[in-house]
Design a protein around this nucleic acid. Structure first.
Length: 537
RNA sequence: GACCCCGUCGUCUAGGUCGGUCUAGGACCGCAGACUUUCGAUCUGCUAACAGGGGUUCAAAUCCCCUCGGGGUCGCCA
């Protein structure tokens, strides 16, 4: 181990969907680890046995793997400091807690949850600082024995000297001093025998040799507790670096009511992991200015590039708002960066993922929409796109060859893979349905439009070679021949061929579609117009 | 409410540690134009910020203080 080596870690708790915040923090830990050398640990903090689930733990692994965030040690990989799942380390915590009690740094507390609750209410009413009042501190040895004998449940609390103050250090903010009046006698061991986060976290970080704790800012308020704990054990605390919190639009801490926060959501929505990583890297951080940037946009860079000149001290501590619009833009940038072949490969990979998740996704689509307006709109759209994409896959089973053919014109028309089916759909459909309002330009009538469409069909059928240039040549003289304005005429053809007034370039689309289908659609649209003309007479 | 953290364009940020090179730079969004007989992409241009007030100084976005604003925490959750 070289002197620069760091040992860093993330310690998510497997409750609910894996959170963007976890990925965000993981990225900065990994960047430091890659830059300096050392070890990156994934530790599962499942000490809340009522909320932790195995599924959630699995999702954490999947999400990290998806984002390309790799670990040196984890419950799966193992390692010298294992086990890496806190639920499997109970004896260790117990031992250290007992040691603290034996040395008078912690004490047993037999107060019931009811009493604590009443205490809280009282303190709130009298506007007193909230916290344990220390009643059980003064229990005599005999009383403790008696309580134990009677089988009364108890917790172990940290003994805090409320007279003094605790000086903490944060890598970014430097000195943070807090009067111990503000520090509660924190529960270390819960009555179920499991440790609280605070104990387990400190013990594990020490035992695992963690040198740098890079975590979210919300932990600053419990920093003193942790520092006191390190002191009680007689251990050297690691370097603490508290990253800013990701925010909702209204600046509050990012939450699932107001923002997509689940990494699974982003994956489902067709976001690229490299775009996510790049975007997240820019939250609270900016790389040192570079002489030149290959992308023309200094904010677009891969993780390797970030690592190359990573500097933790460049982190900014003000809370960044998670801006989906910018993420969308980044995702589009990464899609366009790929070659057509790559892009198709990735799209197919995404489709395989959707297929594998079909059960879960369809169930999700059927489930109730999020209540909060912010998320509802967003997820409504995501669900609609998921539904049509799932249909698209099942119905058309698009082949790689086919996809590569059309990717050139489609790549730049989607911000994420979930939008692909919508923009590409017309290439695959057999019969298009038409909006007469679009098919018949203003100041013309259905009968005339049908005539023009047939003329176009004839022309395309008769050009010798079905190529972009030849077809364009053949159709270009049509405005003169018909007296129609070019704009109107091409729009009518566009609608006839693609079914929409918004589409990829007309002649490229025809080329991809092929002569036969193009002509068929033109005539089909003309036939459709005949029906309307007949009815209106 | 108490304690703690934070405060440059609407958003992400550069610059702040070494005060002058900042009439504050870039990115996203927005707007306009070009190109595309559509949309998008692309290119060009534009709009837009040092929270406010006091100091210190020849000189402050940059240092100090106050105010205001925002956020976090206050659980036998993490």
């Amino acid at each position: 181990m070289s002197p620069d080596d760091v040992v860093v870690r993330i310690a998510p708790s497997p409750t609910g969907s894996p959170h963007v915040g976890t990925a965000y923090i993981a990225l900065f830990n990994l960047a430091l680890r890659r830059k300096q050398g050392g070890r990156f640990i994934l530790r599962i903090e499942d000490t809340d046995r009522s909320r932790s689930t195995k599924e959630s733990e699995e999702q954490i692994y999947d999400a990290m793997e998806w984002l390309g965030i790799g670990f040196d040690e984890s419950p799966r990989i193992g390692g010298p400091a294992g086990p890496y799942r806190q639920s499997e380390r109970s004896e260790t915590y117990r031992k250290f807690a007992d040691d603290l009690v034996a040395r008078g740094k912690a004490y047993l507390c037999f107060c019931t949850e009811k009493r604590i609750e009443e205490l809280r209410v009282l303190q709130k009413k009298q506007e007193l600082p909230i916290g344990y009042d220390g009643l059980c501190k003064s229990l005599s040895r005999a009383e403790i024995e008696a309580n134990l004998e009677a089988g009364r449940p108890y917790v172990i609390r940290l003994l805090v000297d409320h007279e003094s103050e605790t000086v903490c250090h944060d890598f970014f903010r430097k000195r943070i001093a807090i009067s111990n009046m503000q520090v509660d006698d924190q529960v270390l061991i819960k009555s179920d025998g499991f440790p609280t986060y605070h104990l387990a976290n400190v013990v594990d970080d020490h035992l695992m040799g963690v040198t740098h704790v890079i975590r979210a800012e919300e932990w600053i308020s419990s920093l003193p507790k942790h520092v006191i704990l390190y002191g009680a054990f007689g251990w050297e605390p690691p370097v603490f670096a508290h990253m800013p919190l990701l925010r909702n639009k209204d600046k509050s801490k990012i939450s699932k009511r107001k923002n997509p926060t689940s990494l699974v959501w982003f994956r489902d929505a067709g976001y690229l992991p490299e775009a996510m990583v790049n975007f997240l890297s820019l939250m609270g951080y900016s790389p040192p200015p570079r002489e030149s940037c290959p992308e023309g946009n200094p904010e677009i860079f891969g993780f390797d590039e970030m690592v190359r000149d990573f500097d933790l001290s460049r982190v900014k501590t003000s809370g960044p708002i998670f801006d989906l619009e910018k993420l969308d833009n980044f995702n589009g940038v990464y899609i366009r960066k790929m070659t057509d072949e790559e892009c198709v490969g990735r799209l197919l990979g995404f489709y395989a993922y959707l297929e594998a998740e079909r059960g879960r996704l369809t169930a999700e689509i059927e489930s109730e929409l999020p209540a909060a307006a912010e998320m509802r709109t967003l997820d409504e759209r995501r669900r609609a796109l998921t539904r049509s994409t799932l249909e698209f896959i099942r119905k058309h089973r698009p082949s790689r060859e086919r996809l590569v053919q059309m990717m050139g014109v489609l790549k730049e028309r989607m911000k994420n893979f979930l939008e692909f089916a919508d923009v590409a759909g017309f290439f695959f459909e057999d019969a298009l349905s038409y909006d007469p309002g679009l098919l018949v330009p203003k100041k013309t009538n259905p009968a005339d439009a049908a005539k023009v469409l047939r003329l176009a069909a004839d022309r395309i059928e008769s050009v010798g070679e079905f190529s972009l240039a030849k077809v364009e040549d053949g159709v270009r003289s049509l405005p003169d021949e018909t007296g129609w304005k070019g704009r109107a005429l091409f729009m009518a053809i566009r609608v006839a061929v693609t079914g929409s007034d918004v589409s990829p370039p007309l002649f490229e689309s025809m080329e991809i579609l092929g002569r036969e289908k193009t002509v068929l659609r033109l005539r089909g649209a003309a036939g459709f117009l005949d029906g309307i003309a007949a009815r209106s007479i």
